[in-house]
């Protein structure tokens, strides 16, 4: 019934590190290292992870804001990586992005009218004489007043600026929007307003979201499915409920337990990891989490685990990249802190 609007296959994004007197390439930052996933039409898939896990790089690679090193990005049946630059620009009409920082992603010298009409102009979405009315309608949709149409970004608050960013993305009637930490810079009360707006727009326009965030509270609220990344790899992917109620990868469990709960009566068992995230330049061999994982064995050091499902333990579509899902679940393997 539901079709995949976006299919990502074996996507790799390496950034070269140049060094030496000749400026030769000495190594790569393996920001995204061979990941594959699908996004279904009309759903919200979230990518979560800590800084440097490759979640934003994935979003940018899909849009070809940075040219990916390798892989396939199939959007509505078309391989985006095979398109010419010109065709790609045209394709971005259907695939839009909203950035984290509304201060940095909007031209400070343009009024709201100019910002929104420029987007429509480039993508040629409406005849000129109809744009004015459309701009006013868009502003209303995102909760801005018509009287603000000739104001500059600095005359708006952070939350309102993010609404301008949303209006700009909507102005070209996209099918899918990549939200890259789109509510992270906002205060809680404003964040809730913007989240509710995004949900409403999704219902009204049947939008698909790829929602990139580090905030698991926000992710639980907005997503249908969740994908967890660690050091350029997918470690777990599942329906929201399955992931939050039944996490299987030790990293996902740690991540969930590390978030402070706004309820002092809930004294939870907290798993505190030792050490920092290793460098993506020379990522650990085998399972990339083995340097911090309390269950790691020699096998984890040597063999890179595949994403897999165990249907007796996990719901359909829930996959985790760990060698020892069963042993950890049964209690046969004990954590070694």
């Amino acid at each position: 019934m539901t079709t995949d609007i976006l299919k990502v296959r074996n996507l790799k994004q390496y950034f070269p590190i140049k060094g030496g007197i000749l400026g030769r390439k000495v190594n790569d930052v393996k920001a995204v290292d061979d990941i594959s996933f699908e996004v279904k039409e009309g759903e919200t898939l979230s990518i979560v992870g800590e800084s440097g896990c490759g979640k934003s790089t994935t979003g940018r690679a899909i849009l070809r804001l940075d040219e990916p090193t390798e892989g396939e990005v199939d959007f509505q049946g078309q391989d985006l990586l095979a398109l010419s630059k010109k065709d790609m620009r045209r394709k971005r009409k259907d695939l839009q992005i909203i950035f984290q920082d509304p201060y940095a992603s909007i031209n400070p010298r343009q009024t709201v009218r100019q910002i929104l009409s420029e987007a429509m102009e480039i993508q040629d979405v409406l005849p000129k004489d109809k744009r004015e009315a459309r701009i006013k309608e868009l502003m209303k949709t995102v909760g801005l007043g018509e009287h603000q149409i000739d104001r500059f970004p600095h005359e708006f608050s952070g939350g309102q600026r993010q609404r301008i960013g949303i209006a700009r993305a909507l102005s070209v009637d996209p099918k899918m929007i990549i939200c890259d930490e789109s509510v992270s810079a906002l205060d809680v009360s404003i964040q809730a307003q913007v989240l509710n707006l995004l949900k409403k727009l999704q219902r009204d326009y049947n939008l698909t979201y790829l929602f990139i965030s580090h905030d698991l509270g926000v992710v639980r609220h907005i997503s249908d499915r969740v994908l967890v990344m660690y050091l350029g790899k997918i470690v777990e992917i599942a329906d929201k409920k399955s992931l939050f109620d039944n996490p299987k990868h030790p990293y996902t469990k740690t991540l969930l337990s590390a978030i402070p709960v706004p309820d002092p009566t809930k004294k939870k068992e907290q798993i505190v990891l030792k050490g920092d995230v290793p460098s993506p330049i020379d990522p650990p061999t085998g399972c990339r989490f083995h340097t911090r994982c309390p269950f790691a064995t020699d096998k984890c050091v040597e063999e890179d685990p595949e994403l897999r499902n165990n249907d007796s333990l996990m719901q359909d579509g829930h996959r985790a990249a760990c060698h020892y899902i069963e042993e950890i679940e049964s209690g046969e393997m004990k954590p070694n802190y």
Partner: peptide, 14 residues
Amino acid sequence: SLPRHDIDQEELEV
């Protein structure tokens, strides 16, 4: 208005 990771919430109050 705080989205929580430990409980389900339909619509956030604002």
